[in-house]
Design a protein around this nucleic acid. Sequence first.
RNA 1: GGCGUUGUAGCUCAGUUGGUUAGAGCGCCGCCCUGUCACGGCGGAGGUCGAGGGUUCGAGCCCCUUCAACGUCGCCA
Length: 588
Amino acid sequence: MAVRFSCGGVGIAQAGTVVDLRGWVNRRRDHGGLVFVDIRDRDGITQVVFDPALPEAFALGHTLRNEDVIAVAGAVRARPPGTENPKLATGAVEVAASELRVLSRSQTPPFPVNEEVDVDESLRMQYRYLDLRRPRLQRNLTIRHKLVKAMRDFFDERDFLEIETPNLIKSTPEGARDFLVPSRISPGSFYALPQSPQLLKQILMIGGIGRYMQIARCFRDEDSRADRSVEFTQLDVEMSFVEEDDVMAVMEECIVYVWQKALGHAIPQPIVRIEYADALRRFGSDKPDLRFELELRDVAPLFADTPIQFLHGHARSEGSRIVAVRYPGGASLSRRDFDALTETAKSFGAGGLIWISFAQDGWKSSIAKLLDDATVAALREAAGAQAGDALLLVAGPSAEASDVAGRLRLHVGDRLNLRDAAAYAFCWVVDFPLFERDPETGGLAPTHHPFTAPLPGQDALLDSDPLAMRAQHYDLVLNGTELGSGSIRIHDVDFQHRIFADVFKLPEAEIADRFGFFMEALRYGAPPHGGMAWGLDRLAALACGATSIRDVIAFPKNQNGRDLMMDAPSPVPAGALRELGLELKKSR
RNA sequence: GGCGUUGUAGCUCAGUUGGUUAGAGCGCCGCCCUGUCACGGCGGAGGUCGAGGGUUCGAGCCCCUUCAACGUCGCCA
């Protein structure tokens, strides 16, 4: 009686036992008088030998092709000395096939399943079931599973309830475009798919749940990127009767636990906290990559008396920065290299780029004629440049200069291979401003979302100087990627109303229409509460060393939001539209 | 919507200054092969060069338009 084993599960311990293996033909090596077939499942690969001594199985073995699905019964035996394969976990043994059944034949696959070669991503998506058989996705989905499992275990142990929130909800535009779902029973009315369960989890707190978590699917009808898709998954968490430090402590414990469980990696604690303003000043970003140093240096004072026209203003203006990015070894770059760097800086939004290099035989610069030795020496000192380094200088209004310099820093980090995919540098970013200026409307916009509470004691600033308000808002950042945001929420209905009415200037009717249900809930004893949400796809991608979240999603959508396997979205029959009370306009 | 990269055999790619019949490796098909594991040997099939238009005696290569994939800016509270 053959015993079922996985294709990665047989070893020398099974020698002599008759096993039953099921799986896919990974490869066939047909010697004419002897046939080797590697059989594969999620667990691994085992070599099966077909010998002419058993003519029936042997004859059928000849006909096998890659990706055929087979069941093989045979005795496990140690391989003849010298023929062991150390590259295979099961390489000490082989299965001598006594019985072969072909469960399913496969057409020739459109791309190799048994090799880790790069294949055009749209082809991989169209034949996702084949891509899923390959080691990379099997490994990534396994890691993702472990992450999610660890999260559920972690929160379960701490008395959190996992609660599902609906996917068909009310459209309450939250910045991103909603996906709308027409209602058959209420023609002309639409559900929206949630951009996040934000209001629902707050209402769960009002509902006395106290501690909530969910692995929640979210939808935003915006253009995709490598790190974001129209449909994505969040770890969503909310807690009652907590302050910032309580939430951050739990979430920090969580990431440490999860990283240990899923990756066996110990995150050093405590995770460093960086104030928002500091992050911008030192790294030019509110999601700094701490895998490498190269901190930005302000050098504006050195240009206070500069004759250089375009620097002069920025050197003296409160709202401007002149920032130096150190490029270790940059003195060996050619003028052409610096020209290319300048183009790169311009693509980041810079007006231009000043460079200074410190070679053995003296300094060079794009503005050499306008610099003197003393200024250059002071610059070198201020920016901490060593012999052989170069400095890249960016000047402009603070926000722009910080952003460009921050991107240049990352660019230099990339060029010098300082951004190690196997390293994990976490940090908290705290002390965000509550509001920021919306450059389009000129009005105020929430930095996080309109339910974020300010630091205690700042309520009065709402009328006098809202831009000076700081939020009880914290981001968790890993390797320059924002994993997630959280905050303490407003639980006072009057203050929440002032945010909508006084700050965002929403008309009463609109507040009532969009948020009426929520405002009403706040009137019935809302506990102080706060929480956080993490982008699970991003987290998984970083954990797997994947460059795109599509490599940690079983059935991802492409850049245009299309599912290439199912070919969705697709037109629907006219009758389906009629039933929904919808009529299509002729396109264009 | 903007910018960039890419598009040549089933896959991954090469293709010179515009010049004969568009190539390679892998895969596929057939035959041979009893210790391979990227098995090996011999033979073979397979191409609207993304699509459309143009320049030219002649276009895979030059020009215009367009489609698609990916990256990125805008956008994503």
